[in-house]
Design a protein around this nucleic acid. Structure first.
Length: 413
RNA sequence: GUGGGUGUGGCGCAGUUGGCUAGCGCGCUAGAUUGUGGCUCUAGAGGCCGUGGGUUCGAGUCCCAUCUCCCACCCCA
């Protein structure tokens, strides 16, 4: 089975690769309009970074990480998400010293040991953005606005913005008390895992899908009713800013997110079926969690490239496929060397040129040129090199133009 | 991790109650046009029927195991 990729992994090539390139191009172009700079961090990090950053109680850390010991005895983990690594790099290189707010984006693979499904892999890829250094709700608003822009640029329509606030440690303590009290009253109806969650992180009970738990949760206290003044104002300002920008959103008290580092704002971009394109939020405690010293507020999101592809397919959006070369230059007879030198010359002049490597007949070469959507074709033989002129064929309408060999590139351009 | 489906040439599929050399469409290669594509016609190449066991005179068809992909749950991007 050496010709089979490991479970939950996928190869990118042909159409899918062309689409992915287009998606990344759109992401980068839009990120540039927000003056966000790219960062690349290692594919693996010390395991503790994720244990501390993502949170010990999360499913991601508890059962989904690709962790191994390297030959030096270090515990290493393939990154299960992008934020922790970016924040680690931010701290390691003291980026806080450069400016008040650091804006970073990345495109990265992420690894989680899960049971695969379509749009859900063991190695997936994320476009992510992190804004580190500001507690203003303007940050989340900008992130949401950025994703809205992306969604629009992809040509997607059926995507909703869902937001919620899960408060800060201060108000969450209040909330947890109320929630725990409530859950204790209904303990008999909760599932086993939820009883465990009550101990470690009661908030996680909120998104349990077990029937009994759902019933209990329906009337449970909501985070947004327990926000402290600061968090409440933050959430209200956020909503006002979104409204001002004309961004439609829904408050969804069900989103609490599966990663422990979130505080205050959490948001998701989802379709009608509740499938998530992108998830993110504010994480004011993550920097302190990793660095142990500084308190630097931050927010960010991750968007799955495979999910983008999945949504594009769902909504039947065509981002365009494999690019065609500018020219197919074929040849026949005993002019291979001269013809290939001409191909080489045209490429040096900046043209994308395809040619024949299989000694095919002229007819077969034409078929191939047609197949790869070459807009122009030139076939050279003894005659062409003898009189220095070639016929440039326009494949769309079949017309031919006589051009001197030296002028091929300029004519096609 | 739990439950349920699936797997036949590159792609999409058909294979009747287990029975002759496993078919079809698309694609691919070549020819019809000794130097010119898209249409048409003709011919050809390409498959240990996911893998490993088992039942049987005989297995693509039945049984077991295993892997993959898919669907729901869990979780998330």
């Amino acid at each position: 089975m050496i010709t089979q990729a490991p479970r939950g992994t996928a190869d990118w090539y042909g159409e899918s690769m062309a689409k992915r390139e287009k998606i990344e191009e759109i992401c980068k172009t839009i990120a540039a309009t927000y003056n966000i700079k790219q960062i690349m961090t290692p594919v693996f990090e010390h395991t503790v970074l994720f244990q501390r950053g993502v949170g010990e109680t999360t499913d991601v850390v508890q059962k989904e990480m690709y962790t191994f010991e390297d030959k030096g005895g270090r515990s290493i983990t393939l990154k299960p998400e992008g934020t922790a690594g970016a924040v680690r790099a931010y701290l390691e290189h003291s980026m806080y010293a450069e400016s008040g707010l650091t804006k970073l984006f990345y495109v990265t693979p992420a690894f989680r040991y899960e049971k695969p499904q379509s749009g859900r892999l063991r190695q997936h890829h994320q476009f992510g953005v992190e804004y580190i250094g500001s507690e203003s709700p303007l940050v989340e608003v900008e992130l949401i606005s950025l994703v809205s822009q992306l969604v629009k640029s992809f040509g997607l329509n059926d995507i909703e913005v869902h937001i919620n606030s899960i408060g800060c440690p201060k108000c969450r303590a209040e909330y947890n008390k109320a929630l725990l009290a409530y859950l204790n009253e209904h303990k008999d109806k909760l599932c086993k895992t939820c009883l465990e969650r009550m101990e470690k992180n009661p908030l996680r009970v909120i998104d349990c899908k077990e029937e009994g738990c759902k019933e209990v949760v329906a009337n449970a206290p909501r985070t947004i009713d327990y926000l402290c003044d600061e968090c409440k104002n933050h959430f209200e300002e956020l909503q006002a800013l979104l409204t001002e920008l004309g961004i439609n959103f829904k408050i969804d008290t069900g989103i609490v997110r599966g990663l422990d580092y979130y505080t205050k704002t959490v948001f998701e971009f989802v379709n009608k079926d509740g499938f998530t394109l992108c998830g993110g939020g504010r994480y004011d405690n993550l920097v302190h969690e990793i660095d142990g010293k500084q308190d630097i507020p931050a927010a960010g999101f991750g968007m799955g490239l495979e999910r983008v592809l999945y949504f594009l397919e769902l909504e039947n959006v065509d981002l365009g496929g494999v690019k065609a070369p500018n020219l197919y230059l074929g040849f026949m007879g005993s002019v291979k060397a001269k013809a290939y030198k001409l191909v080489d010359q045209l490429r040096k002049e900046g043209l994308s040129v395809e040619t024949d490597y299989l000694d095919k007949s002229v007819k077969a070469q034409m078929k191939y040129a047609n197949k790869i959507n070459a807009p122009y074709v030139v076939i050279v033989g003894e005659d062409e090199f003898a009189n220095g002129e070639v016929k440039v064929k326009n494949m769309a309408d079949g017309t031919e133009t006589v051009v001197s060999i030296e002028n091929i590139a300029s004519v096609i351009k």
